[in-house]
Each structure stands twice: as C-alpha cells, then as structure tokens.
Design a protein around this nucleic acid. Structure first.
Lengths: 190, 190, 190, 190
DNA sequence: TATGAATGAGCATTCATTCAT
DNA sequence: AATGAATGAATGCTCATTCAT
C-alpha cells in the first residue's frame, strides 16, 4: 500500500511546524522541510503554491487543532464558570504540551503574515468563548465588556507565561495553571 | 555645528526600528536600513559588528526607553494601587504611541534572539513592578504569587490587546485602557 | 544522451583552473567562474561547499593529473638513470604544456592553502621518485641524501625555469630541457 | 624630536611585509597594515598611490635588501668556486632568517604582479652572479649554459627547500645548506 | 505524480579609497 | 601633513522556485 497523497501533504506540514517553531520562518529553508518530510524539494510545490501558502495553510491547521481542543468536552449546559475553567485549563495544557504549535502561533501573529491574516476572532478557538462570554454577561456573572477585551484578559496572561516558560525562564506547575485561571476569572467576573 | 558620530548611529537605529517593525528582521535588508538612515551601506558596520549586533543593540535601546518610561513619576510613597494604575497606564500609552517599539519587542521575544537573551525580568521595566508587588504582598493588598505570574497577569492582557489593535482588529480607547487596568487589578488583588 | 552530473562539476573545475591561473584566487569571482563554466552561480555550491573547497578539490585534481603523468611508462626494471631522465622529461613537458596547472600549483603552495595542506611528499607525484631515489642510493649511483633534498634538487631548477618562461622571460627549448635534466643528474649522482 | 616622514613610509612598508607574508596580498586589508604601522588609514595613500603601488614598492625594497646581501663580502679577486659558495651560503641564510621576505617574494612572483613586473634578471641579486658565471665559463670551470639556466640551477633547489621548511615540512640544518650548495655546484661545474 | 538538479535574484559583509577636518 | 569616518562597489553564498525527466 502506497502513501496517499494526503500523507505527503501532512508530512510536509508536520516537518514545517517543527522547523518553523525551532528556527523561525526565514531560517527554515524549504529544502530542510522537504528533507525532514522525506519528500523531494519540488514536491512541496505540488501541495502549496509557495512558501507563504505553506505557512498560511499551517496556520489554518494549527488553528483547527486548537479550536477542536477548546471545544472538547464542553457541556453547554454546565455553569459558565465551570465551562470557562475547563476550557482555559484545556487550552493551557494543550499549548504547554505542543510548544511547536505555540511558537508557530506567536511567530505568525508577530509577523507580516499575522497582520495580513487579520485574525478574525470569530474563526479561532473562540466560538465556545463567545458562548461563555455571552451567557456569563447575560447571567450577570461576567463583566459586560467587549469580547475582545474579555478574550485578552483570558488568554493574555496564559500566553505570556507560556512564552516565559519556553524561553527557559521558569517552569509552570499544574498548581500555577490553576492559580492563573483563578486570577483570570477574578479579572472578568462581576 | 557638525554632526556628532552618535547621530549616524542613532539614525541607523531609528531606521532599523521602523523597518524591522514593519517587515520583520529577515525581510529588512541592511541596504534598505542604510538608505532610510541616509548613510552608506558600509557605515552600519562601523557602528555594529553585524546585523545581529544591530538587532541586539536596538533591543537594548528600546528596553531602556520603556524602562525609563515605567519609572516616570512613580512616587514611592504613594499607595500600591495608585502606583500600579499609574505605571500600567503609562506603559499602555507608551506602547500604543510607539507601535514600532512594541512590534520590535514582540518580534524579538518570539525569535531565537529573545531566547538567547533570556529576558531577565529584574533588568527590564520591572524594577518598579517588583517594588509594587512586594509592597502589595506585604500589605496584604496583592495576592502572594510568584512575581512572574503577577507580571504575566499585569502585562499579558495589555500586550494581547495592543497586538490586536496593531493588526487592525479594533481601536483601543482611553476608556478601554482604564477598564483593562481595572480588570488587571482585580486579577491580582487580594 | 544527456549530460552526466559530472559534466557540470568538471566544467566548473576547468573554468576555475583557467581563471585562477590567470588572476589568482582572490581576483577570481565565483560569478566569473560560473559564467565561463556556463552554469548558474548557485550551481558551484551544489558541487563544492564553498570557494575554498573548490580550490582544494582543484588541487587534488591537478595533483592526480600530474601524478598519473609521472608514473607514465615507468619501467621498474629499467636502470635508475634512465628512469629518472624519463620521468623528469615527462613532468617538464607536462608542466610546460599545461601552464594553468603549473600556475595553479605555484599559487596554491604559496598561499595559506598550501600551508594547511602540508604537502605530503609521499602522496604527490613522487612515489616513483622515492623508488628511484632508494634504488639509486642502494646501487650507489645517487648521493645518500634525504629524499626532500634530492627532490628539491630534481624539481627546483625545473620549476624556476618554467616560472621564468611563463613570465615571458624567455623560451624553453627541447634542448634546454635535456640540458637541465643532465645538470640535475649531475647534482644528485655520486 | 618628531618622526621624519620617511619613518612613516618605512613603518608602512615593514607592517605590510609582515602582514602580506602572513596572509597574502588579498587577505591583508590596508586598514590592518596602517594599524600595525601606527598610522592613520589615509596615511598610506600619502606615500603610495594605491595598494598595488605599495606592493610594488615593497618588492623593490626587499629586492634591494637581498641584492645588498648578495654583494656582501664578495671578493672579486677570489676564485669563482669560492665566491659562488660564499654567495649562495649568504643568500640561503638570509632567506631562512627573513622568512617574510621570502614569502613575499614567492607570492609576488606567483601573482599577476610578478608577471607584470617581468623580472629583469640583471636587476635582481644577480649582478654578482653574472660576474661569477662569466668568469667561470671563461675559465672553463662552469658549464657554458645560458645565464638563466645557470641561475635556475643555483637558486631552484634552495628556493624549494626553503618553501618546504616554511610549510613546516622539515628543518634545514647548516649541514644541509652546505650539502645543497655542493650539489648545486656539481650541477653547473664542468 | 514526484523528483532534485539547476537557477539567479537577493543579501550580508568587506575593504580600497576619498575627503573634510 | 595626517587622520579616520564614511562610502559603495564588489563578492561569496543562500534559498525559493522551476522544470526536464
């Protein structure tokens, strides 16, 4: 049984993610990616128009993965607070466990790519967040603030902590995760 | 009155900051920088050993600028809460008013440079933060958490909001700044 | 029939030899070499790690060529004197007929490359020389001197004459070659 | 008492000789030369039109030095053989003791400079050689060969040995010098 | 469909030379 | 006369992309 075409595409994406996360977009020659993916140099161009396309496709994939994770086990009937704690915990854990995804994301946002992409919050991992926010505001549990602000309050601290951990600055414990989520909750609760 | 040698060095740094912020390190040819700085290509290498040196020197300069701003008008005798609100407000405003500084910083941290630099929190804009944290903890006004975590809680949301604004996502109003700071305070207060 | 990959490598070596011999290593841009070889600039770097590698590979090639020539028609059973005259004649002729090889060699030895290479006499064109020397010494036909000295006595005059001829100083006739070899023989014979 | 202008010229020549001998013409920036000579970068251009001029002037100086050495203690009345042995010994020793001069010379001859200069044998260290050759031939002590050939026979072996020694290949002893001169004599004597 | 050799535009960096002081 | 900051042409090398097989 031979590889399905999808396999090559996926191998390229997987290799690209690792290499981009490690070295940055511009220090990651396509030749290195194709080598790690065990495909020919030209093959990348059969699946992606050019390097930029590959980067954007990779963003979409990582974004999908994160979104799927965020939805995981969300019980729409559960209380807002419980859902938020659950979701933040899952995302936190996911990003810590998938540092390449995190690094790629950060790089993407802080580059011309991210600016062009003009992250559309509605399309990211935040459908459930929106649901939680709206329900929380309606129930007068969460401050009535713009979603963007609530979003930044929820993910800003987490993001900064993970970045610090990845630069070797310190180690995040499970307890620290809970403490952070608790503090995050304090910042948005009414 | 003739140009001091510092002028050229500064012209290079200024040009580099703008171009790096706009295009990223790797899409910013030294030739473009020297052109914008109105100096010869070779002149950059009289002031900086190589492009990496320039980037690191630029980081130091921006860091200095931010640190100086953070210390501004801090009255050590004033209440903790007041000092924190003041400081966060100033930093928020500074980063919004100096988007190139912000973009450069973010890029730097999310690149091999930042990882090598291993941000030493004690040396950044946070001497006053440390003071505030310690005093707040001592007075049982602020949660007794690691400084790193408190730091992330203070600057994470702000950072994410500014990034969003710079990607054109929305506009941050003065009222929003105050709201954010208030929420930030809620996340760390006891 | 298509070009074998070796063709491009060889074309690069050939072009490099001519240009190096003419202008010296440092006045021979890789762009000029690639142009004369009818290949793209980057192609050089598919076959050689960098310019230094190219130079060293070229040395190996020229060395091989000379060595092969020196061995040519050597009849191990023939008398020492006959063998020596034959070999010196062949090498003399070869270097006169291949001035690029000669110039390249001289340049190589009088540069940091040659010093690093630390010419290992045993590995150059001199296996047959060693044989001749040892046999001659054993038969008490040749002076019992260090091989290095015998080597210098054999090739020093020849080298200097060829250099003079290449600088346009005068023309070496076949008779001159024979006279030189005869004199060389006189310097080492017992 | 301040430096005479000549001092600076000489300082530049001295520095250039060392640096050229060590690194080759093209790996010896004028800035490095001026630094070692303790003069300003521009100062070189007050004494020499450009780098090429400096190289040629340096050649002339080294050449003068060698010529002066060769003439040293030559007693025109002494026997040809004695004079030749004396002169070769002095030159051999000089070149061994002044490796920078030797290396510079070799580099010069094996470069486009040397070819342009078209070494005029009459102008080098060989006035005394010519005298010796002519007298020797007249007295039927030396083979009646072209001066060029006699010259190559005299200096070829010496040159090759010194080069070998400088590449670290082996060490030349005083005894070796005498042996070499003796062999050289054998090659040109009748 | 897949490959990887070949390409050449693009970039960091060097260094001979100039010229204002 | 002497200086050294400034210059920019020149060069080695990289890497995204193409295309013949």
């Amino acid at each position: 049984m031979t590889k399905k075409p999808t396999d090559k595409r996926q191998a390229i994406l997987d290799a690209a993610l690792k290499i981009f996360a490690e070295n940055g977009f511009h220090s990651s020659p396509t030749s290195q990616i194709s080598k790690m993916a065990n495909v020919g140099t030209g093959t990348i161009y059969r699946y992606f128009e050019n390097k930029d396309s590959l980067i954007n496709a990779l963003y979409d994939e990582v974004d999908q993965r994160l979104r799927a994770t965020a939805w995981e086990d969300i019980d729409e009937q559960a209380p807002v607070r419980e859902n938020l704690f659950h979701l933040l915990g899952i995302v936190f854990r996911f990003l810590l466990d998938n540092p390449s995804d995190f690094k790629f994301f950060e790089q993407y946002y802080n580059s011309p790519y991210g600016i062009e992409k003009k992250r559309s919050q509605e399309e990211t991992c935040d459908k459930p967040m929106v649901m939680i926010f709206e329900k929380g505001i309606e129930q007068q549990i969460i401050k009535d603030l713009p979603h963007d602000l609530l979003f930044a309050l929820c993910f800003g601290p987490m993001t900064m902590l993970i970045r610090d951990q990845l630069t070797g600055y310190f180690t995040i414990t499970d307890e620290m995760i809970q403490t952070t989520i608790k503090a995050t909750w304090d910042s948005i609760r009414l």
